[in-house]
């Protein structure tokens, strides 16, 4: 347990809710301390990734809820979590509104996607993107919270995948060109699909294959850690190499890694495998 990422992680002062939530998750076995996560919740129920801005952020709200799924389930924690989910239930990508669906169907057709299939935006009054949608799907799964939004969000992920597998930031095809996937976002979406039982589809297989190949020569602990977290479920042929690579890179660069990368590394190197969509 007391290996490099943990020791370094204890010395870090998180600057964002993303860093805070991931740090608390990574250190949960030695210090189940989530009071600062609870304390950062906004009156609306969301979390702002940069608390000083007070701008509600879907991605950090999802991560905060995942972190709290490992807290002792006190009445205070439960109340906070339900307020968070209530806000998420109300927040949706702008394309969910019939007026904007018209815009995308009639006028704004350069980016190919089905506006009927929507998930969550990064911040309010914008359209759905893959990373916040995937993280929120993991939060719903971690708390086994039923929601009518889950089906649409899973369909959105499938609709917006890249043709060769994996995900770009928001969609797979724009201005007549197939977009290339990004490893971290692809890993998040893969975690979300698998957590919700979509682990057998060809999209999942293509994405796992893409991640394994894309990350083989990757020098970034952040993307590698996300890749390992996603591939641990399937234990594919690349997993051993990626784990070793992650161990080596994080050891070498531990002082310069971001807190988020360090925490993700710690989670990715856990044994048994850490699952973002499973509550403690």
């Amino acid at each position: 347990m007391a290996t490099t990422p943990y020791l370094e992680l204890r010395t870090r002062a998180p600057r964002t809710i993303e860093e805070l939530a991931l740090q608390r998750l990574a250190l949960r076995k030695t210090a189940r301390c989530f009071s600062d996560v609870l304390g950062a919740q906004l009156p609306c129920g969301a979390w702002s990734n940069r608390p000083v801005t007070a701008i509600p952020n879907v991605y950090s709200t999802g991560l905060a809820l995942i972190a709290l799924s490992h807290a002792d389930p006190t009445p205070g924690v439960r109340a906070s979590v339900w307020r968070g989910f209530d806000w998420l239930d109300r927040t949706r990508g702008r394309e969910a509104h019939w007026l904007w669906q018209w815009k995308f169907r009639l006028f704004d057709r350069q980016v190919r996607f089905d506006p009927n299939k929507f998930g969550w935006p990064w911040v309010e009054n914008t359209v759905s993107w893959v990373a916040p949608t995937a993280i929120v799907l993991l939060a719903y799964k971690a708390w086994n919270r039923p929601s009518g939004r889950v089906t649409s969000a899973l369909a959105m992920l499938e609709d917006r995948a890249c043709s060769a597998g994996g995900w770009n930031a928001g969609n797979g095809h724009a201005f007549g060109v197939d977009l290339d996937p990004h490893p971290d976002v692809s890993a998040m979406a893969l975690c979300a699909l698998e957590a919700h039982g979509a682990g057998e589809s060809s999209l999942v297989e293509r994405t796992a294959q893409y991640l394994g190949q894309r990350l083989e020569e990757c020098g970034s602990a952040y993307s590698l850690a996300w890749g390992v977290l996603a591939l641990k479920r399937s234990s594919g042929p690349h997993l051993g190499t990626l784990v070793e690579s992650l161990r080596r890179i994080s050891e070498k660069n531990k002082a310069t890694l971001s807190t988020a990368a360090l925490a993700l590394t710690a989670l990715a190197l856990e044994s048994p495998a850490f699952d973002l969509g499973t509550r403690a």
Partner: peptide, 15 residues
């Protein structure tokens, strides 16, 4: 424009 506040991409600006 910081993604940690506005997201990736900075879709607020597009809108």
């Amino acid at each position: 424009v910081p993604g940690s506040v506005y997201g990736w991409p900075k879709n607020v600006l597009h809108w």
